[in-house]
Design a protein around this nucleic acid. Structure first.
Length: 875
RNA sequence: GCCGGGAUGGCGGAAUCGGUAGACGCACGGGACUCAAAAUCCCGCGGUGGCAACACCAUGGGGGUUCGAUUCCCCCUCCCGGCACCA
């Protein structure tokens, strides 16, 4: 055996052997139980970053562990290959997105191979491949036929200088990132999917999933199912006349202002009403009111991001129009408020400043009446105390016939009365909105629709799919390249044969990632999926960043249900268990460009200054010395340019060190701030492991311990070994906490290295311990483990070894150590027989000198005995 | 702003169901080996006081429940993620 650990020679050799024997190609049928484990597919940004290393190493370790446990394991890989960064790279370098993307994929695939992940590459998927995206198009058409896909107008961010639609990411502080121009909202026609049709099921079926509770909670809150009442505030004479004279959308004249509320019990507290700037009533009121028209224009300025809208200062203006209270007939003034969202409910609210936080802030600002209609324990009405009582439970007061009712009863009574008057009804409202999938971009799946002047929207016939994306275009940042390419959009109507135009929008990339895991399972199928998907799905374990907790996971769940309803798969949920990996963070540095846009810098391009506390205080460019702005820490991302390439680590220490490092550093669910300081320690450990095996082998390998007389020391070592096997299996399989599993093996090896005994029994125990330690670590560091195993058991392969068995007899103990506390503070230890009674334990504890000292001759007030753990003497 | 999460030594983290706070490492200090260095090995390592035994303090801050709280409850601060066109 080599005395030196040389990962750079060893790892490629072992990887070649795996490739030659197709070691990780998973059969689609097996007598073994299946285990399907997938990591969220990476965006091919150029190089792997540490987040990927963490993600796929967790995936790989779980897969190795499950193989050892006797499962038929599938670990596939693919590329989320459409999207914005490819277009940005194209603009920067003049290279078509297709070329850039494919080169990145090739490089990153090499890196994956160098990491030694046990991927079944025969199932690789790249979402930019026509073989893949044709099924996006095919499925889109099926959903269209079913009415799940439909067209309506939607709001986008508009850059008036570049004349282009901006992604939210491209809007920085309300300005376009390239031009620095103030962004505007613009309404354009788009395709939508009716995810809201599935809202109830998406909430209800969360319950059965093995997902982190926090993720399920986030999804529930996102869908935001709330039961409330939709009712009408009738117009007064003036409003009635104006709204019927020229109702802007020309639809049926509404008899009043429709609102939705979950707090109808506070209906007697209405002091005004508010509508969104885009509401038809606002439009009508602005007719001939220049100030209001200007205010509405102002509301439409700025981007469409919710965070931006929600943090805006609350502003409003009178419309001069009035509605009437449904019960009292009192006149209620209607305001336009920038805090009312057109996209939620009816785009209009009844305002009860006494019992709603936003209405309160608005009323206070404009000096509107605030009326308390819920009694909250006799507290006096006081604006200063308002924060304390606005949403407290209580009985109705100052509410006429509803006085004295509790919330639920008041709600029911109000609903009944509104229904009786024909003004309202109970209804469920979701916060969730339908999924808009149209993007005015080039690098995505073309929408398979032809717009015919005679026939309207016509679907591309299945036989003509895929509608291929031209791959040689280079975007320039203004408008969509497809919309300027007649050879793409010029076509004939499939229905009438006349000249027609293709839809030049592409699909949201969330479409691509909504079903790729089913395509892996039915690789190269001539349909979207086939029966093999049914074998592998639902996925046993899904792993990915917590940042995908809502959107991606919700869309994928919806998509799966839609596929089920079209008879393509017979499952309700795609992901049985979910592990949300914490993000790998790094420092972010940026600078404003001359144009007013923004530019990011990688840490290696900068000289970074640190203050006395070790915190980053500033930075300058290495080239040129210009200062840059420190923006704090954030997720490693391509756009912020703060990723760390693991390549150096692989080249210096090998893949096993990189793998070991990320796995031992922290629990997978934790966020970590990148630091490459302790990588060296991981390498030293592997070298020490190698040295231990080398030393053992040099003394001569023997058959592992299988019974016979053992000294106390050997029995203790075997106890530790078998406890460790139990713990590591639990950490890998149930807790998925690899850092503590590795720490446990280190403890075992620390104990092992103290062993001096060279007797035949000791040699057999040593063989047992070192063999099993290699097996326990093998899921994390498969290369070194494979090499060491072949020295410990010549002629056998690590890949054929099952997970080590726990020897129950090694775990039997006759004595245990208990902790003795006085008033909950540690004061000593006692060793007792495992069979000792409560009374015996108590007596022994009280006899301790450290305990007597605190007793001062008195009898203890109480003695708490926790079996197998501790004794607490209360004095 | 709203939703979800987090905060433990100089650093990463451990304590799994309310039961020994700091496992296991990194960094650092001291020592051994060496002509020297690297590598390796041994010892120490939360704070304050003390020669020591030991005592007290300590898990972001404040309060509470409990024999006992890093863990449960209430309030607060700061940080991270998401907020529908980044993926």
């Amino acid at each position: 055996m080599e005395s030196q650990y040389r990962p750079r020679e060893l790892e490629p050799r072992i990887q070649q052997r795996w490739a030659a024997t197709q070691a990780f190609v998973a059969p689609d049928h097996s007598p073994k139980p299946k285990y399907y484990c997938v990591s969220m597919l990476p965006y091919p940004s150029g190089k792997l970053h540490m987040g990927h290393v963490r993600n796929y190493t967790i995936n790989d370790a779980l897969c190795h562990f499950m193989r050892m446990k006797g499962f038929n394991v599938l670990f596939p890989m693919g590329w989320d290959a459409f999207g914005l960064p490819a277009e940005n790279a194209a603009m920067a370098n003049g290279v078509p997105p297709a070329k850039w993307t494919r080169e990145n994929i090739a490089y990153m695939k090499k890196q994956c191979e160098a990491m030694g992940w046990s991927i079944d590459w025969t199932r690789e998927v790249a979402t930019c491949s026509p073989d893949y995206y044709r099924w996006n198009q095919w499925f889109f058409l099926r959903l269209w036929e079913k009415g799940i896909v439909y067209r309506k107008s939607g709001m986008v961010n508009w850059d008036p200088v570049d004349m282009t639609v901006l992604a939210n990411e491209q809007v920085i502080d309300g300005r376009g990132w390239r031009t620095g121009a103030v962004v505007e909202k613009r309404e354009i026609p788009m395709w939508y999917m009716r995810i809201t049709d599935y809202a109830d099921e998406l909430v209800d079926s969360l319950d059965g999933l093995g997902w982190p509770e926090q993720v399920k909670q986030m999804q529930r809150n996102w869908i935001g199912r709330s039961e409330g009442i939709e009712f009408t505030l009738p117009y007064d004479e003036e409003a009635s006349r104006r709204m019927s004279d020229g109702h802007p959308d020309g639809s049926v004249k509404p008899p009043g202002l429709k609102v939705f509320t979950t707090r109808a019990d506070t209906i007697m507290g209405i002091t005004f009403a508010a509508v969104a700037a885009e509401h038809p009533l606002a439009t009508e009121a602005a007719n001939g009111n220049a100030a209001l028209a200007a205010f509405i224009e102002e509301c439409k300025r700025g981007g469409v991001q919710e965070a931006e809208i929600a943090t805006m200062e609350k502003k409003g203006m009178r419309t001069g129009l009035f509605v009437r209270h449904p019960f009292t007939g009192d006149k209620i003034e209607v305001w336009v408020g920038n805090y009312v969202l057109m996209g939620y409910g009816e785009g209009a609210v009844m305002a009860v400043p006494g019992h709603d936080e936003r209405d309160f802030a608005f009323a206070k600002k404009y000096g509107l009446a605030i009326k308390q209609v819920i009694d909250v324990g006799g507290q006096p009405y006081s604006l200063d105390e308002w924060q304390a009582w606005y949403d407290a439970p209580g009985r109705n007061v100052d509410s006429g016939k509803y006085d004295g009712l509790e919330q639920k009863a008041a709600l029911d009574a109000v609903a009944k009365d509104l229904e009786a008057k024909g003004l309202g009804r109970k209804r469920v409202q979701y916060r969730l909105r339908d999924w808009g999938i149209s993007r005015q971009r080039y690098w995505g799946t073309p929408i398979p629709i032809v717009q015919c002047p005679k026939c309207g929207d016509v679907g591309v016939p299945d036989a003509d799919l895929p509608v291929k994306l031209p791959e040689d275009l280079v975007p320039d940042g203004s408008g969509s390249p497809l919309a300027r390419t007649p050879s793409f959009f010029g076509t004939k109507c499939p229905k009438c044969g006349g000249a027609a135009k293709r839809d030049t929008d592409t699909m949201d990339t969330f479409v691509d990632s909504s079903w790729y895991y089913m395509r892996y399972a039915s690789a190269n199928a001539s349909a979207m999926v086939d029966e093999r998907a049914q074998y592998w799905m639902p996925m046993d374990q899904y792993i990915g960043g917590i940042e995908h907790a809502i959107l991606h996971l919700l869309y994928a769940r919806f998509w799966t249900k839609a596929m089920r309803d079209l008879g393509l798969i017979r499952i309700d949920e795609p992901f049985t268990n979910l592990l949300t990996q914490g993000m790998v963070l790094n420092h972010i540095f940026s600078r404003r460009t001359d144009k007013g846009g923004i530019e990011y810098f990688a840490p290696e391009e900068l000289d970074i200054a640190v203050d006395a506390e070790g915190k980053v205080s500033g930075a300058t460019l290495k080239a040129g010395g210009k200062p840059v702005v420190y923006e704090g820490i954030g997720t490693m991302s391509k756009s912020k340019r703060n990723g760390v390439d693991p390549q150096d680590m692989i080249e210096r220490y090998g893949a096993d060190t990189a793998r070991f490092y990320v796995m031992q550093a922290s629990p997978p669910t934790d966020t970590v701030l990148w630091s490459d300081e302790s990588v060296e320690g991981s390498f030293k450990f592997l070298r020490r492991l190698w040295a231990m095996v080398h030393e053992h082998v040099a003394k001569g390998i023997v058959a592992r311990y299988s019974g016979g007389e053992a000294t106390r020391e050997l029995a203790d070592l075997r106890f530790k070994l078998h406890k460790t096997i139990e713990k590591v299996a639990d950490d890998y399989g149930r807790r998925m906490q690899f850092n503590t599993a590795i720490a446990a093996v280190r403890e075992l090896l620390n104990l092992y290295s103290e062993l001096q005994d060279a007797s035949p029994v000791a040699r057999a125990v040593a063989q047992e311990v070192i063999e099993d330690a290699v097996l326990l670590l093998s899921p994390v560091v498969p290369h070194i483990a494979t090499a060491l195993w072949s020295e410990l058991r010549p002629g056998t392969d690590l890949r054929d070894q099952p997970w080590p068995a726990v020897d129950a007899s090694a775990l039997v103990q006759d004595q245990i150590e208990l902790v003795v506390q006085v008033n909950g503070k540690l004061r000593g230890h006692i060793r007792v027989a495992t069979s000792a009674t409560r009374e015996q334990v108590e007596a022994m504890a009280l006899k301790l000198e450290a305990v007597q000292k605190f007793l001062n001759g008195q009898t203890p007030k109480k003695v708490v005995v926790v079996p197998g753990r501790l004794v607490n003497v209360v004095v």
